[in-house]
């Protein structure tokens, strides 16, 4: 990460010097803090709002009720896990992903990983953790709330075809990657 970051910066400075744009570049760079804070207000504010509402939904047990539908899927995906609490949390995580609130479920994923680590009694990565990660990366979404609200800010909504193709893409990605991970990934035993 460090190497990439610094090499990009050095590269762009050298490029700017050679193409005589350095005088325009430096004043723009001084605006970075302002831009970052602007972005943080725009994006982070929305995220905080959704985290708040999602937390309310968890406390009111709405998410648990919805999450029960996914119990068979979780049982099929992670047959080694018997701990009921973990299964419930994974179901809630799937529900968060369905609502397009991947960011709001960060504390939840951390909790799941901690519990899994406690159960496996080692600090090695297990197949269940990999499956959880892959599931979160390929995030199968039905109601992409974050995207909808950003587009709402620009006075445009999500067309029905865009929405349907988004559901198809995320569903296929999740299906293929989870199947491949389930069949091909094996733990390294020491």
């Amino acid at each position: 990460m460090n190497k990439l970051w610094s090499s990009f910066i050095i590269f762009s400075f050298i490029y700017a010097i050679f193409s005589h744009r350095i005088e325009e570049m430096v004043p723009e760079l001084l605006l970075v803090p302002e831009k970052t804070i602007q972005l943080l207000f725009n994006v982070g504010g929305l995220m905080i709002l959704y985290t708040g509402i999602f937390h309310m939904a968890i406390d009111a047990k709405v998410i648990d009720k919805v999450g029960i539908i996914f119990k068979p899927i979780v049982h099929w995906m992670m047959p080694n896990i018997q701990n009921k609490e973990i299964i419930q949390l994974v179901c809630a995580n799937i529900t968060a992903n369905l609502l397009g609130l991947g960011m709001a479920s960060t504390p939840m994923v951390l909790q799941i990983l901690e519990k899994m680590k406690k159960d496996s009694n080692s600090n090695q990565i297990t197949k269940e953790m990999v499956l959880l990660l892959i599931m979160n990366v390929s995030c199968f979404t039905i109601f992409p709330l974050t995207i909808i609200s950003i587009r709402e800010k620009y006075h445009s909504n999500l067309g029905i075809y865009v929405w349907l193709s988004l559901i198809c893409i995320t569903f296929l990605t999740s299906l293929i990657s989870i199947l491949v991970t389930k069949w091909r990934y094996h733990d390294i035993h020491h």
Binding site: W5, F8, A16, R21, M25, E28
Partner: peptide, 10 residues
Amino acid sequence: VFVVECLKNC
């Protein structure tokens, strides 16, 4: 944002 701005403005 810093890196992206560097790349954008160079």
